[in-house]
């Protein structure tokens, strides 16, 4: 417990970890403020204004159609008819019907808690996962590169225990930040929905779904922290984890994506990591192949699909975690600390 206490204190004292956490919080705040600023409550006044805007749009369309028709007829009469501009029969120029101008098009954006909060949970998890990865990498990487790890091993010559205790302290810290921000996130978006949208139809089932998505998001955050920690421990430097992640993203994801698309590989996204993370968070991602035609009995052509479900994403996360953390623990056991 004394070692855990020391490592948890060390985590809280680390300036870079503090800055990263603060940065993550600022981004979360920016997202919440942005959502608040760009959404509005819909009431009778907003509906009336939208109706008025739809009517005005319709009138403008009638005026424009009348003017165009007139110019078409004049052009025909003068012999300067432009076939690219006007139809052969000027009577074909007519305004759109009134019911084509729906008032809901002119309503301001509004935040529907039941419909939109799930995406906000994904955003929260993504931001915190990034913070967790960098903080995890820095927490152990800087210890290795500055010699702090060697110093600690002189005090507690139990390598695996030291490494796992450090990881435990990191995950505890991340869990704390995740829980606090999750509570604030729910509160903030409930307030946004109340003030700038609607909280209607948020049933207990919806809350349960949000809870499960939140738990999956929490798992992503903790796995990201542990993987960053493990990679930096393997390379004994923060840059090892950050460089590795950057390399995977640039070469392994963007590069691979371009190559797969150029090669015309079917369901190229199935080879890319973000697809699985998205499937993990959204329960399911459906990939579509627009080059394939699955004809229906009505003669409609539907693209071929491929489903990636949350279990696939979960398996990938578990395997990635097991491989990196296993390698870090194995190296910790056998390497010379010099």
């Amino acid at each position: 417990m004394s070692l855990f206490k020391a490592e948890f204190r060390r985590l809280l004292k680390r300036r870079f970890v503090r800055y990263m956490t603060l940065g993550g919080l600022l981004v979360l705040i920016a997202v919440a403020v942005g959502t608040f600023a760009t959404n509005h409550k819909i009431g009778p006044a907003e509906f009336a204004a939208a109706e008025q805007q739809a009517e005005q749009q319709y009138r403008e369309n009638v005026r424009w159609a009348t003017e165009e028709k007139k110019q078409c007829e004049q052009a025909k009469a003068s012999g300067n008819f432009d076939a690219n501009r006007f139809p052969a029969d000027c009577s074909q120029i007519s305004p759109a019907p009134r019911d084509a101008f729906e008032a809901r098009w002119f309503l301001p954006s509004t935040f529907d808690f039941r419909r939109q909060f799930e995406d906000m949970i994904t955003a929260w998890a993504a931001i915190l996962a990034l913070v967790a990865f960098v903080a995890g990498a820095s927490f152990i990487g800087a210890e290795w590169s500055t010699g702090g790890m060697m110093n600690l091993l002189l005090w507690r010559p139990q390598r695996l225990r030291v490494l796992l205790t450090k990881l435990g302290a990191l995950l505890t810290g991340l869990l704390g930040v995740a829980l606090v921000t999750a509570a604030a996130w729910v509160g903030a978006f409930w307030a946004i929905a109340s003030l700038r949208g609607t909280t209607e139809k948020t049933t207990s089932g919806v809350w349960q779904s949000f809870g499960l998505t939140g738990l999956r998001g929490l798992a992503v955050v903790l796995v990201a922290g542990a993987v960053g920690f493990a990679l930096a421990s393997l390379g004994r430097h923060t840059a090892m984890a950050l460089g590795g992640a950057l390399g995977v993203m640039v070469v392994g994801q963007f590069g691979l994506g371009i190559v797969l698309n150029m090669a015309g590989v079917t369901f190229a996204e199935a080879w890319l990591l973000p697809t699985y993370l998205l499937a993990w968070m959204q329960k399911k991602v459906v990939l579509q192949d627009w080059d394939a035609c699955n004809a229906t009995y009505t003669g409609e052509c539907k693209p071929a699909t491929m489903e990636i479900v949350w279990q696939d994403g979960g398996t990938l996360l578990a395997v990635g975690l097991a491989l990196t953390l296993g390698a870090a623990l194995w190296m910790m056991r056998r390497r010379d600390v010099a």
Partner: peptide, 27 residues
């Protein structure tokens, strides 16, 4: 108690913090 080769400490901590954390780790 040991020091091996050149002294190596996390540069952004104070001396007191450095020793305090070691004291915690070593009871």
């Amino acid at each position: 108690g040991a020091i091996v080769e050149s002294p190596q400490f996390f540069p952004h901590f104070t001396a007191r913090d450095t020793l305090s954390l070691l004291a915690d780790a070593g009871r």
